[in-house]
Write a protein that binds this DNA or RNA. Structure first.
Length: 247
DNA sequence: CGGCGGGCAATG
DNA sequence: CATTGCCCGCCG
């Protein structure tokens, strides 16, 4: 490999610094939440709200992953979700460098970059590209990501939304072990590796909610969903403050 | 058993 | 960066 070539690559890969960072509320994109009300989480100075075309993220600078990712699906959005899959993962410039994951963190880590809002849900080319933000990723066991999670959780949710009468609000996120003693991070940035992943599905028309709850492990297979109240109990997050779903 | 959807890494 | 080849699991 030539020195000159490396130099050219380094120029191409350089990124400009963001001039302003993300805000702390979702006033710019309330449409992704049932009754326009985002989940209630414990305040944290490193939490930042990010709005995208087809989803919204509350991002944690401590874990360098999402706290949750919210979407609104319905029959029309799923029928539109036929874009060609993008492949370009990127660090999100709206986050301070010290708070965000990088491509280097995931490289050769042994963990996959697992989408929270799935690429397969995205209704436009731009939304598809945005879904590859590392703010929308968590370190996920590779076989789980492409296996049970993709098939029994993501595809099933899409299929459900495609048959629903109205809007289906979906919230996906990681769950970490409370202990900080063990190093659970990957890469120079120490992106934390979730112990569990969840996906909450709320059918507004039927006022019903349930949640998938998977151990982040290659051995995980599909399983029966848990109730909304059980998810709230396990995470400590009131995901649907604007709704009173029947479990 | 082929297609599909989820990824990975090496190369110039 | 784009291109290319590859692995894996699940479904029909």
């Amino acid at each position: 490999m030539h020195f000159l070539f490396r130099f050219v690559l380094s120029v191409l890969f350089s990124t400009t610094a963001a001039t302003s960072f993300a805000t702390t509320d979702f006033s710019a994109c309330p449409q992704f939440f049932a009754k326009s009300q985002p989940p209630k989480v414990a305040p944290n100075p490193t939490n930042r709200a990010l709005c995208y075309d087809a989803f919204a993220i509350l991002h944690s600078g401590e874990s360098k992953t999402a706290v949750f990712v919210a979407q609104k699906l319905n029959r029309a959005s799923v029928e539109d979700a036929d874009e060609k899959r993008a492949t370009k993962f990127f660090a999100d410039a709206r986050l301070p460098e010290a708070e965000r994951a990088t491509l280097e963190d995931y490289k050769h880590s042994g963990w996959s970059r697992g989408h929270m809002a799935p690429a397969g849900d995205m209704p436009t080319v731009q939304a598809m590209a945005q879904s590859f933000s590392l703010a929308n990723m968590v370190p996920q066991a590779a076989k789980h990501n492409g296996g049970a999670w993709a098939k029994t959780v993501e595809q099933a949710t899409r299929k459900y939304a495609s048959r629903a009468r109205g809007d289906v609000f979906v919230i996906t996120g990681p769950v970490y072990e409370p202990s900080f003693t063990a190093s659970q991070g990957i890469g120079p940035g120490q992106v934390r590796v979730p112990k569990y992943l969840f996906k909450l599905v709320y059918d507004e028309d039927r006022n019903r909610a349930w949640a998938h709850w998977h151990l982040n492990d290659d051995s995980t297979r599909g399983s029966r969903p848990i109730s909304y109240s059980e998810l709230v109990k396990r995470t400590g997050i009131t995901f649907l403050p604007g709704a009173r779903p029947n479990d």
